[in-house]
Design a protein around this nucleic acid. Sequence first.
RNA 1: GCUCGAGUGGCGGAAUUGGUAGACGCGCUGGAUUCAAAAUCCAGUGUUUUAGGACGUGCGGGUUCGAUUCCCGCCUCGAGUACCA
Length: 982
Amino acid sequence: MSKYHFNEIEAKWQKHWAENQTFKAENQSEKPKYYVLDMFPYPSGAGLHVGHPLGYIASDIYARYKRHQGFNVLHPQGYDSFGLPAEQYAIQTGQHPAKTTEENIARYREQLDKLGFSFDWSREVRTSNPEYYKWTQWIFIQLFESWYDKDQNKARAIEELRVVFSSEGNIHVNAVCDEGIEHFTASEWLDFSETKKQEILLKYRLTYLAETEVNWCPQLGTVLANDEIVNGVSERGGYPVVRKKMKQWSMRITAYAQRLLDGLDNIDWPQPLKDSQTNWIGRSKGSSVTFNIKDHDAKIDVFTTRPDTIFGVSFMTLAPEHDLVSKITTAEQKEAVENYIEATAKRSERERMADVKTITGVFTGAYAEHPFSGEAIPVWIGDYVLAGYGTGAVMSVPCGDQRDYDFAKHFNLPIPNIFKDADISEEAYSDKENTIITNSDFLNDLNYQQATEKIIAALEEKGVGEGKINYRLRDAVFSRQRYWGEPFPIYYKDGMPHPIPTECLPLRLPEVEKYLPTEEGEPPLGRADDWAWDEKQLSVVSCQLIDYETVFPLELNTMPGWAGSSWYFFRYMESEKRDEVFASKKALNYWKNVDLYIGGSEHATGHLLYSRFWVKFMHDRGLVPVEEPFKKLINQGMILGESAFVRKLNYNNSEVPPIFISNKKFLKESKAKEEEKSIVDYEFKFSKLFDKYLGENRKIQVTMGTLDLHTDVAFVNNSNELNIEEFKNWREDYKIAEFITEEDGSFKVSREVEKMSKSKYNVVNPDDICSQYGADTLRMYEMFLGPLEQAKPWNTAGITGVHGFLKKLWKLYHSGENESFYVSDDSASKDSLKTLHKTIKKTQEDIEHFSFNTSVSSFMIAVNELISQNCNSREVLEPLAILISPYAPHISEELWNKLGHSESISTAPFPKFEQKYLVESSKEYPISFNGKMRFTLELPLDLSKEEIESAVMAHEKTAQYLEGRTPKKVIIVPGKIVNIVG
RNA sequence: GCUCGAGUGGCGGAAUUGGUAGACGCGCUGGAUUCAAAAUCCAGUGUUUUAGGACGUGCGGGUUCGAUUCCCGCCUCGAGUACCA
């Protein structure tokens, strides 16, 4: 055994760790706890590429480091295994999504296992397992059985609300609930039928059914949450999304808007991520104002952030979807308004977004009354006002708001100026800081701050408005018209939803013969034969038995992907009594929350917001001891792929096979810049190739010069040369292709950095890297690429540097005869101890700052130094193995074993840094003249400033650089620099 | 448009408090070894030069004895968000 046989070593230790459960966490320990978690992976069919494990490697290094530091570490892994792709695949192939999910997980696991992660697999979680989703359903029922009390600022049991209703009605109830709930007294409540009571309670529940405008994606056949839509199309698949009114389950996340915002101050997350949650929640401060409508008993409520500009209102604008539109529109305007509404409804969300410039709108014929001046204000509708934000109506102040200004200009509406000395001839004046209000009755000569205070007081006194905080955040739609998700534990009785008793959970996903909606347009669960709830038998029975007396239909929608991922981090804490509780009190109190969470930034407004919401809710109801799930969070940057392109001559003739030209040759021939001209040259130069197929007399039409086509990076070597044979066999029509190569017969491709993706053929598989270089090399190289949080391109060629390092490390421990293992028990040299201790210091600092790339460099430096020092001392080589073990656990474990240890290296304490080995007696001072370093001078460190100065001034080179001048000033920073000015 | 982040050799990147810019690695050049190749080892490698130097961290200013680092004004790229009243 002399060489570094990484494949054998890695397989051996992976097996050993699994068999010995080396990384199993205990729920009881003398040690302090530390919980390291990776964002929940979705097991996609494509498997892992080298970009995926980046975060896992970082978290694994940290977890291993914490173990060395004496922590009881929980580092689990599992799968977010419900979701659209498996279902889409099921629709296409008829295979049960459970089966494909199972296969994907197996493949994922196999790939993960090869990388040597220190996961505690005994706590694995899969969201699609009934034993898991039983508790997702259970939490849903807890939400259903809760309401939000604004006075106590927390969620409470719905039973407590019933008690309040029975004793005093709902007049004093200050809850987050549906709009426009009618007041009732205690006696009225008691007289209501049970159905009526349920109907009212539903308006208060934290998860509720309501007719809402939803994002409907016809191609996916389901609704989508706001965060699942990117640029007006679905995040998955890129299909169009339209707005549609549907009865859906929603989550009253808006109740938590302020707490979700405030909580951000207490968690250690990247600022951009906090910013995007802050923006998503979108808090704005202002006031509500109510406008009466002339000759009508309707009122228009608006929200404004600039109540101080109320005397600048010259018109009102309602969203086309606003409820009042049909009521207040006059007979003369009816046709115009209806045409407009029809036209805007046809425009898709995407069109509306793309076309912000075009101003459209129409007058309703109605007039509102100014609450202070009594003036008549025309009421318009326009699609720049969004139905979903605020009240769906604005008071338009064209002098102060650019959109109102543009609208006014376009329709020739008056633009009264209420700002002192402001020029509004070209654009609105929106500078709050320098505002002085004028032409505004009692607000004249006040600044923004004063006017705002005064007007809000006036509004409140008159009873036509009040100070108000508005949030952009909407309640989250929770229903999906899909099969592969958690069934709602709900059945319908008299049209009202009822939860099935919690002891009957889980409500298992039924079998269906097809994963498509029914002919009636119901979700796939509508195809299930046995999907009715029998209240007497407490079980799921055949739909045929539905009698609406004891047997009722079950909910047909399923829960969205984020249901299972909003609480999974608690499930890992519990390893034993998973049947009895979602997680036991003991486990929850021991592990509390996730100390370190690593994952991509794409979950900023989805998973990371919903989880925080659920945790706050669960905390309110006493289910968990913490209010925030993730104390510290790190976003790992994406690893980008290096796509390879082959250049193909472009011409319109099917008789000629594809002709590819080597990139280097192409650049040379085309003289890089004059591409257009070079096309003619090709025609001439390579005409022989065409002649072969067309005969000499026929000229081919060249349309566009050349085309760059993606080729699989697997066919390209480190020198950018294409393996022509493999490429030819790739596609049927390439088999007969012609290649214009370099003089030496090679064919060069061009490269470009792009996102790593199957469709770009630039995916690098970690399995290949592992078999060629080993997992330790892959782990280290991924870290070595650059800072964890930054995006960086993958370049397989560079991996040899890290691999070479591990070989050198191996050699350092194999300095015996015939490269046999050898360490001596002699004490180490001063230099070696210095190398060791500076590396301990650096590694520790780097890991704590998540600067893993720089510690890999410091290992390289250390090993280079120790080799040149011929170090073979146990005193240095033992601690060195521990330092490296979080990064390269297999080789370290092997070396540790060879050093004579029977316990895993992961149990070894982290080496202690000792300053005394780094103490220097002298320093090589850089001597600068006017800030420019000219030479260095070695001087003892204990010299005083004066002694340093005289030593420097006495040096012969000093005189040389001074060229006879007398220095004006000599700056001396002991231990750092000397700078001579003059 | 707004918010945030980033610009350093041929490439990935380092410089943790304002103190020797380019650590470490890739690539490249030359050499050793080899029948040859791979592997390994040694030396060199920011640009420029009249070989003294000069220039150099996106651009233009400023503060300082000294700026990749701090301040002001721009430019470019990336990410998120988008009629939010």
